[in-house]
Nucleic acid binder design. Sequence first.
DNA 1: AAGGATGTTCAGCG
DNA 2: ACGCTGAACATCCT
Length: 260
Amino acid sequence: MPELPEVHGYKTYIDSTSLHQRIVELDCRDTRLFKQPKTEFEKHLLNYEFKSTHRIGKYLFVETTGEKVLVIHFGMTGRPNYYKSEDDRPKFGHIQLSFDNGYHFAFENKRKFGWWDLTDSIANFKEKHKLSDDARDLSLGDFKSSLSARKTDIKKIIMDQSVAAGVGNWMADEILYQSKIHPTRRVDNMTPEEIESVFDAMKKVIEVAIANDAHYRDFPKDFLMHFRKEGETCYYTGAEIEKIKVGGRTTYFSPEWQKK
DNA sequence: AAGGATGTTCAGCG
DNA sequence: ACGCTGAACATCCT
């Protein structure tokens, strides 16, 4: 489920469970999840501790007592899991760390699109991967300037991690629903007011999602997430929700509410 | 039982 | 050089 709000929750979870304990073992069932040789992870993790975490968009950075920073991306189906007994290792816990207090930390990744990497510095990594500031902290000025030269659909733009790090497919649909903007509206045809309304909706969706621990059922009743399905009923217009493809991703919107 | 899935990356093209 | 598109990636779920 991991878009910005989910990864935010994972960060909180890791902070409250897994910091300041010496790592004594590393097990990986599928090394394709490693962006570097397993020996590198052993070298930079074993006998060190997780010290602190930082999140930019959907990327989580774990600073350790060693030299390198662990970079975690959860992909489409990842999540962390901390548990006492080895017997509780989750089915899809492909990577597992063991701490010297006897507990374990699993990186669950059902569909294996997630990965671990190591980096020297968060700033370098952010630069290299062209990540914008985290969407939660992004300024309107920076948002507007990264949109200025673009000429494609607004949905594709807000899902671009170099524009607003952390916005994924469901958030993009929600943001555009909240701002009454059609997903294939071209950015170069949008007024400054419309762009600002998208920006405001982005901030709102992020804060609402975080406040509700990314638990969709607790979102306000006018949130698309409750009826984000073909043929469902739009809260505002009563019209049917439509399903289209935008930038290769399935997109739900309300044609009456989000006019083009 | 085939198609879809909350993500990123990269080749190819204009 | 840059923006854009579509496919590829791996695997599970509906």
